[in-house]
Every structure is written in C-alpha cells, then in structure tokens.
Deep mutational scan, measured.
Amino acid sequence: ETFPLDVLVNTAAEDLPRGVDPSRKENFLSDEDFKAVFGMTRSAFANLPLWKQQNLKKEKGLF
C-alpha cells in the first residue's frame, strides 16, 4: 500500500495512516514519488550506508 507524499512528510507517528511504520515511511511512497523525493531508485537508496539513508530521510521530512 502506498500513500501520497503529503500524508507522510513531517507527520508524527500517531497521525500516520494505520499500518505505516514511522521508521520506514519511505517504503510507503509510490515508486514515482520515491524517485522524485530522493532522486534515485529504491535499490540505489538501499545500497547507501545507513547513516546516509537516515540523513536523506531527515532532509526530506521522512524521518
């Protein structure tokens, strides 16, 4: 299941849709939104070091 970017960005855990893991908001973006937000594919993002993934998520309001 995916959700629009505005539902996930800068949203407190208690305000997220049911079933969304607040530590993994990026997994609930569509592939198109994911690429638009991070400028890379999911596989490229997954290959980044964890610290870099976290920094990007913070920068984009998805942490």
Rank of each mutant, 00 (worst) to 15 (best):
W51K: 08
A46S: 13
T41N: 11
F3I: 07
V7G: 04
L29K: 01
F28D: 04
K60I: 06
E26I: 06
D33A: 06
E26R: 02
G19M: 11
L62N: 02
K52N: 08
K58G: 05
L62D: 05
G39D: 09
L56N: 01
S30G: 05
E32G: 11
D33L: 05
S43W: 13
Q53F: 00
Q53H: 00
F63N: 13
K25Q: 06
R18W: 09
S30A: 07
E32N: 09
F3G: 04
K25H: 04
N10L: 07
P22T: 06
L8D: 03
K60A: 14
F34V: 01
K35H: 15
A13D: 15
V20F: 06
W51D: 11
A36D: 10
T2Q: 07
A46M: 12
E59V: 08
L29P: 01
M40F: 04
G19R: 07
A12N: 12
V9E: 05
E1I: 15
Q53S: 01
K52S: 09
E26Y: 03
E59G: 05
L48H: 01
L62C: 09
D21H: 07
G61I: 02
E14V: 12
E59P: 01
L29N: 01
E32C: 07
Q54T: 13
G39C: 10
F45M: 01
P22Y: 02
L56P: 00
E14Y: 01
A46C: 10
L16T: 06
S23E: 15
L56V: 04
L48K: 08
A12M: 10
L8Q: 03
G19Q: 09
K57E: 03
G19Y: 08
E26V: 05
L56D: 01
F38S: 00
T11F: 08
A36K: 13
F3N: 04
P22W: 02
E1D: 12
S30M: 03
V7T: 10
L62M: 08
F34A: 00
R24C: 13
P4M: 04
L8C: 06
L48S: 01
A46I: 10
K52H: 12
F28I: 03
K35E: 15
V20N: 05
N10M: 08
L16H: 04
L16N: 04
S23H: 15
E1Q: 15
P49A: 06
K25R: 15
N27S: 09
N47V: 11
G39F: 06
V37S: 03
V37E: 02
E14D: 13
Q54R: 13
S43C: 13
N27E: 14
A12V: 09
D6Y: 11
P4H: 05
V9P: 03
N27G: 06
L16Q: 04
G39H: 10
K58A: 11
D6W: 15
E59N: 07
A12T: 08
F45T: 00
D15M: 09
K58Y: 10
V9C: 09
P22S: 08
E32Q: 11
L50G: 10
F28P: 02
K60M: 07
D6K: 10
V7P: 03
L62R: 02
E1K: 14
K35C: 13
E14Q: 13
N55R: 13
L5G: 03
T41D: 13
P17W: 03
A44Y: 09
R18G: 12
N27C: 13
S30R: 05
E32W: 08
R18V: 14
E32M: 10
L56Y: 05
L50D: 09
D15Q: 10
S23C: 15
A46Y: 14
K35Y: 15
A46N: 12
F45I: 00
D6I: 10
L50N: 09
T2E: 06
E26Q: 06
D6N: 12
N10P: 05
W51E: 13
L50Q: 12
E14S: 11
M40V: 03
K58S: 08
L16P: 07
P22G: 06
K57P: 00
P49E: 07
E26C: 06
D33K: 03
A13L: 13
G39I: 01
W51H: 10
Q54P: 00
V37P: 00
E32T: 12
E14L: 07
F45D: 00
R18N: 14
N55W: 12
N55F: 12
F45S: 00
A12I: 09
E32P: 08
A46K: 12
G19W: 10
T11G: 14
S23G: 12
K60Q: 07
D21F: 04
S43E: 13
L29C: 04
